[in-house]
Design a protein around this nucleic acid. Sequence first.
DNA 1: GTGAAAGCGCTAACAT
DNA 2: ATGTTAGCGCTTTCAC
Lengths: 340, 340
Amino acid sequence: MGRRHPGAPTLEEVAARAGVGRGTVSRVVNNAAGVKESTRRAVQRAIAELGYVPNLAARSLAGQRADAVALVMTEPRWRQFAEPFFSEIVHAIGDALAGTGPQLLLTLVRSDAERRRFLEYARGGRVDGVLLMSVHADDPLPDMLAEARLPTVLMGRRSGDERVSYVDADNAGGARSAVAHLLATGRRAIATITGPPDMYVAQCRLRGYREALASAGLDTRPSWVAEGDFTIEGGHRAMTRLLERHPEIDGVLAASDTTAEGALEALRAAGRRVPEDVAVIGFDDFPLAERTAPRLTTVRQPLEDIGRTMVQLLLQEIEEPSVAWRHVILRTELVVRESA
Amino acid sequence: MGRRHPGAPTLEEVAARAGVGRGTVSRVVNNAAGVKESTRRAVQRAIAELGYVPNLAARSLAGQRADAVALVMTEPRWRQFAEPFFSEIVHAIGDALAGTGPQLLLTLVRSDAERRRFLEYARGGRVDGVLLMSVHADDPLPDMLAEARLPTVLMGRRSGDERVSYVDADNAGGARSAVAHLLATGRRAIATITGPPDMYVAQCRLRGYREALASAGLDTRPSWVAEGDFTIEGGHRAMTRLLERHPEIDGVLAASDTTAEGALEALRAAGRRVPEDVAVIGFDDFPLAERTAPRLTTVRQPLEDIGRTMVQLLLQEIEEPSVAWRHVILRTELVVRESA
DNA sequence: GTGAAAGCGCTAACAT
DNA sequence: ATGTTAGCGCTTTCAC
């Protein structure tokens, strides 16, 4: 492996050149107060002349901090990567970290080997904290990080009682308002296509659907619920099944915008007009919908807020390690795009 | 900032517990040879009992290596992020780095501030090398890294005489073979839509187009060349212009698949049938084409090979720092999908 | 305000 | 085969 350029000037050499002690140079480099202006200037000149660059490994070792945080992307094969949702959230986090904060490091964790390597990296103290995205219910990573006492913030949660800090959208609330909107616009035969039943986010959205119907005095029989998997194809298949069971359907809540996309395909293939015959509302996890179904009413997630909040929580936990877990649930917004 | 868990056991404590010297523990931890099996076992037990985790900052400092490489993503607003091309290449690099290699760290560099921060990070010795993607011609980052003597490998090049190692696709060759295919299938009125003229990749593709026509004894007047910008909209506009100038067009080389996409839209809007009336070939930087225009003939770039080769070059340069720049040009492949 | 000195936890070279 | 030692380059008291 590559040795770092050996002749690189050290703090000591800078000190010698400037005719001061190492402590003083350190103070100047770190913008610490309590250095006479003339001294500071002299040191800065020495730094410039020598082309001095602080060795961060040494700084980490002495200072007990990494000045970096990791954003972990799980998923064996991140197609997500290719999804605007992902891009948005990463940029939001990057923005939130702009300015003075630590360096943001994105890391792929797609296999056990990669998980091990990352854990070694993180527990080795090379990051001060970890942000996790779209973690599966059975992913052990969050708990392993927590056990290593590394500040950790999840995006979304794996279950109802998550033992790690997280930021999540109000999925149940979003579903409720979507269904309420369908009801308000006169729909009565409302079905839903869910996400994978083992994902908490999917459970919440389904619950919201049921609650909304229940509070309108309508009951939900199982045959109005079809299982999808957050893909276009899954949405297509589920919609097809629903149409067979209930040709009278006039409203659909899709658990993601990809699902909505698939549902639309199936509806059109069956000759239904949208939204005249059937209104479809999807969660726009993936603002993809903006392109493919721009006129669809959607439940929007505040991606920017989610990213900003995650960073905020993480920095807090880094600053003052505590035994508490912080949870933030952000409101979703119903974006009405057609008059159904 | 968060102090690393203070009570964390050190190598020394492990040594004490196992009743051996620190050197021995270090050897065991690093899987070095020359440790009696029984000793190794004892050390491993002590490690397990204490829950010892090596401090990587200390290792970096002593060992002069970071065991990490960065993959830098420039672009002020990475929409690219959302593009399959990007996803593919990242995964390819991740795969190539799997196994024993260093940790892969993706970093965003979207602004001057972020560039400075990353430079500090990289020059501070926290990575052993840097991979760069889609760098603009005027981006100073590669040169700054080179100046800092950090092993660096570019994907694509900024100009004909790049002073940094890079891996690139044979863009001119790809364009030549595409045009040759159009000619071979009887097309004669062949236009091209270029990318941004200040991008070297676009220049190469244009050159290939010209060379192919020239070697067929046809000459290329400027009016057959329209400037695009690698976007769908740009492709659309350029195609519209071309149709006005040369209604007799029967073949188009598009400098990207998004460009091809836009060209297709414009052709259809003008009532042309593809490929009956006009054949379109695009470079599929972004395998998007697989979805939107699955039946189009394309020039395919070997993304996996590019990723693998980049990693290979980088590891080589890390291993044996040299003054040479290594350049690899990978063959493209013409994927014929329709009988024009 | 500034210098000196004591680590931070590890690797690697050198003894043994 | 294993223990010992000398740094790696910085931050941070603690004197002055």
